[in-house]
Amino acid sequence: MRPASFEYHKAVDIEDAVRLLAEFGEEGRPIAGGQSLVPMMNLRLARPGHLVDINALPMTDIEFDDRTMRIGALVRHEEYGRDPRIGKHFPALLDAVHWIGHPTIRRHGSIGGSLSHADPTAELPAAAILYDASMVVRSLGGERRIAAVDFFESAYVTTLEPGELLVAVEFPIPPRSSAGSFMEIGERVGDFAIASVGAHLEFEQATITRAALVCCGADLVAIRAPEIEAFLVGKTLDAPQAVEVGRRFAAMVDPSGDHIASADYKRALIGELTRRAVEAACARAIESK
């Protein structure tokens, strides 16, 4: 359980990194915290010919303007996880961070690394999809943005092209009053989720005006539920019909069983976690008013 040989390159800036990644194509992999990539390399499930170390790159800021929160790809989970502004605008993201791994993992793992790794049960891809985040991607050809929902293609597969580097993720700041929650069930603390559900609600007075729901555990990527989100619109915060919302989400998904959890269990968890996430979001909304 030691990695196969590779060449190591320490990128000095973003230009350097994308130049190296372009040069190596399929053989090149960026490495940040290494908390997901290196286990795969030690197990020889990943064997990149070239590792491009991006830890020195200036992608470590959390920036806010009126409309957007931009988190640099290298910001570590522990760091953004304690930024109070995230709790204000993106409570489901803040909840999600606390479900990631263990203290040492959170200290070194980065938001960009987790998103690029695209584990189907990971929290951050789900949160990105929930909040309609955009991936800011650089290559020799310049910069482009990929909507989260288009970024995650399958388990461990993104639409990043060879030579592209995720440099930041942008979360649009909800224009109205909002609240959210993220709930997860795993076998142990820090384990990959069996199922997780995120809820984001925007409201005026006591009425939900927009809703977003996301779940992990049902498919190879986290999925949204547009019809159920529409069902939530117009409901009141004190009576969101959360049980019915959960029932509908559970009925919509088609998970596969594995050796830890059966398909019917995952479906039931998605229903129950949906109910709890919606209720928790509503409770937070009421509390914030």
Binding site: Y8, G34, Q35, V38, P39, N42, L51, P103, T104, R107, H108
Partner: peptide
Amino acid sequence: VPKLSCLTF
């Protein structure tokens, strides 16, 4: 800062 030396080159 604590880090796993099996995940670090």
